[in-house]
Write a protein that binds this DNA or RNA. Sequence first.
DNA 1: CCTATTATGTAAAGACCTTTCGTAAGATCT
DNA 2: AGATCTTACGAAAGGTCTTTACATAATAGG
Lengths: 395, 395
Amino acid sequence: MKEERPAGTPVLRRMNRAAVLDAVRRRAPEQVRLAELTQLTELTRPTVAQAVEDLLAAGWLRQHAPRSAAVGRPATRFSLNGRAAPVLGLDVGPHTVTAGIADLAGERLAVIRRPISRRGARHLLEAVDEVTGEALAMADLAAEHITAVTAATPGIVEVTTGRVLFAPSVPGWSEIDLAGHLRAHFRCAVTVENDANLAALAAAHQRTGAGTLLAVQWGERLGAGVVIDGQLHRGAGQAGEIGFIRPIGHLPDAAGDGRGPLERAIGAEAIVDLARRCAAEHPESRLARATDAAAVFAAAAGGDPIAAEVVDRVAAVFAEAIAPVVLVLSPHAIVIGGGIARAGAVLLDAIARRLEGLTLTPPSVELSELAEGAVLTGAIQMALDEVWRNTLTAC
Amino acid sequence: MKEERPAGTPVLRRMNRAAVLDAVRRRAPEQVRLAELTQLTELTRPTVAQAVEDLLAAGWLRQHAPRSAAVGRPATRFSLNGRAAPVLGLDVGPHTVTAGIADLAGERLAVIRRPISRRGARHLLEAVDEVTGEALAMADLAAEHITAVTAATPGIVEVTTGRVLFAPSVPGWSEIDLAGHLRAHFRCAVTVENDANLAALAAAHQRTGAGTLLAVQWGERLGAGVVIDGQLHRGAGQAGEIGFIRPIGHLPDAAGDGRGPLERAIGAEAIVDLARRCAAEHPESRLARATDAAAVFAAAAGGDPIAAEVVDRVAAVFAEAIAPVVLVLSPHAIVIGGGIARAGAVLLDAIARRLEGLTLTPPSVELSELAEGAVLTGAIQMALDEVWRNTLTAC
DNA sequence: CCTATTATGTAAAGACCTTTCGTAAGATCT
DNA sequence: AGATCTTACGAAAGGTCTTTACATAATAGG
């Protein structure tokens, strides 16, 4: 479908280089022998040797000393030269900014995490700069070395331009051109993406061969990402906004703080509210002391009937809200991450039970194992994907 | 990402052949000059000439007499040889079976349509055989000539095996191995797909560059297909089942006839019921005489206030049901086809108006222009896609 | 020290594409 | 009618790449 432009014999060489590099990548982080590569790529040995020589010269591969292990002449081993193309991932949240630098193989070279004390777009941008600087120093790299940058931000992002269109959680954030700011520092591909989308990407990469995945980020706010065969689904630009689904029985209240109806109904804050209201009628319940959503789920897991009732109601609202999505998208799994993910199996089971009556073949409902690092992992993942996409076609 | 296996110089030749053939296809049904192809493929003229010679010898292309039109030596023109790889598309509905044969360029060679008098899986299968036989005769082809078959059927289809898992509208249909039956006749790739999915594919092909499309088939039953960048989305196997979305305020009634809650609420039959109930209180309305959904919409278009109210209620239920899907999928457009599509702008406007309050950036809501032929068109489309996929990699 | 085994290097051959030049066929102008 | 222009086609030379086949290098075990 997509053909090369000049299409001479050099194209063949490029293709073979790409094939070899891809094979090395799949074997990473293990070192790989030449003979192994010929098998993996199904090319002939001289061809692979040629490609390896090129890649070695270009700095993509590193040669290791031949360790003799078995009989015969010991093979020279090769591995990815991570330093050839380190990438930067950023997780810009309203309360925390994290920068991570990873090498080509996905190995983390540096991670710097910093809480934000003062709110506001300016301070956030400053924190981004500080954190990236420190991460670069920690990895002993300069900005020029970075080959791809992906930044995760809350809100709705126009990916083509990198502009944040709508970000209620950070006042003034949509006026700031984060992508432009980063592009001024880094002379490479810069992508700005919605944080829930990137968390979804990370979840999909972890669940290998996930097919279609709906990854929900559930905390104060509610977002989701759709990953189809490893590719992030963007649609017309704002896919995954489950926070704005209007749950049954909840009237559309005036959009004051930019939160959507579902977030108002079953966001972390709303769960605590609901628990308080229920506890008021039942003072004997442990719920009376609950100050955050985690405590509610803990109480439910501990056998508190009132808490269980609350969890079930939350699960019911969630299940009813996404049932249409499940019916249309038919995801293989729903992965739940974000702050609520710490709730554990109590919530999962309740959701799965509710979904059974609402869908034809309910997907498995799982917790994200990535926890807080999901967004950063996804950002790094996307940056790496970008590098590989560019690299494999023209290394 | 996907590399060729042997990767010698011959693959270059194959790639170039594929590029040339693809270029001819894009120009179809117009005849194309050699010089044009060099431009389109960005290959050199001798290379294109070589490829054309190969394709001519293999029978994929036809050579035309040089017609002198402008100045200069008249160019020999080439076009796709449709007879090289005709495909069969089938639309197996509960009441009608249609067979269509198309050539490589998408030109229809034969279309045979037959209403089914007696219900039952047996009669349906017989009709399929009859109709395909007549279509083959009409196109003057034998079964061996067909290079790909796609059959559309109602119900839920396991695409990998071609088995129909669930087909309430045709009793006994899920016991019949349609794919196996067709494979016995045709020695080529046979695909069985859900009819709504294929209608969606057709709609996406018509709306060129559609990005993400949600195509709804709305008649007695409700189904939908999701097409993303020209690719049908299947998910875990039963994507697009909007008929089973549970609309607000409608209790889950016992699944008697296999219809889903939304179908019971706003399927064609339910619309008539609703209109009758409303008309009962307002005898002056034209609705009292409405016997089918089309009449209701016609009355609404004609200014009948009661009918307008009915349409608005239907639109509201539909909009509320798919709003979550729109939020998560963010489709560029929603295309409505099926029997209800004849309703026209009245329904569209009402839906669009309702969606505005429920979604962030509402997609455009459009009518399918394909009307009844959509499913067959989609089936042929998918068969052609199959041929091209196989052909372009190994012609 | 020699042999078996495994890995790597090198040269000739074959396949393909590209560049370059020359030729052919028709249309328009004089 | 002939000249000239435009467009299209064909053939040979040159270069790049892969493949095949053969030779060489390094190690362990006898």
